[in-house]
């Protein structure tokens, strides 16, 4: 189907950029709240006592790498390369799952060390912010696996590259949010 649009741009892609713009305000509010409440907790544990920089550096690297896999997946789908589109889609989803694994481990450790979502302001803001981000990653993983299944069904040819591109936009945006979180939450204590 030829679709006329006034700008020549695909409507879904435009809508998705608008959605990402909207998400900026969502994470902007969450991050602002974290920063505003920083150092205001009346009892511990504090970020300095509990945040594990080496571990999170590794998971950050994993998420960054997944973004590379994502662009390679899009390139493979666009040129009709079935094998490599599957390899890279799977890699992206896999690396995303690893990131989630790190986060699950981190949360469990924190709870063992006495930080829950109700302990103090740090706990409330930290878990809400990183939890919202983690939920976004989880949705992304499911989305990527869906695309992988479509690929195995033979329904992810070059004509469907836009579907992958939009999933990629989502994935990279989630990555970008993590870049900000890693800096303002973990490194700037």
């Amino acid at each position: 189907m030829t679709h006329y649009t006034a700008t020549g741009l695909d409507s879904r892609k435009l809508a998705f950029w608008a959605f990402i713009g909207s998400e900026c305000l969502l994470f902007g509010s969450l991050i602002s709240t974290y920063l505003v409440y920083k150092g205001r907790s009346v009892r511990g544990p504090t970020p300095q006592e509990i945040l594990n920089i080496p571990l999170t550096s590794v998971s950050t690297f994993v998420l960054l790498t997944s973004s590379l896999a994502m662009v390679l997946a899009l390139a493979a789908v666009a040129r009709g390369d079935k094998l490599w589109s599957r390899v890279w889609l799977f890699s992206t989803a896999f690396l995303g799952s690893i990131f989630l694994g790190f986060q699950a481990y981190e949360f469990t450790e924190f709870v063992h060390n006495g930080l829950t979502i109700t302990t103090n302001l740090f706990g409330s803001t930290f878990y809400t912010l990183t939890g919202t981000h983690g939920a976004h990653v989880a949705v992304g993983v499911i989305w990527l696996l869906t695309l992988l299944v479509r690929s195995f069904q033979g329904k992810l040819g070059p004509d469907k590259a836009l579907n992958v591109e939009i999933a990629g936009l989502y994935w990279h945006f989630v990555d970008v949010v993590w870049i900000v979180i890693f800096t303002v939450v973990y490194l700037i204590q």
Binding site: L14, W17, A18, I20, G21, S22, C24, L25, F27, G28, S29, S32
Partner: peptide
Amino acid sequence: IFSLPLLLALGV
């Protein structure tokens, strides 16, 4: 369409 909301978020 991306940077306008991003700037708003930054300003906020």
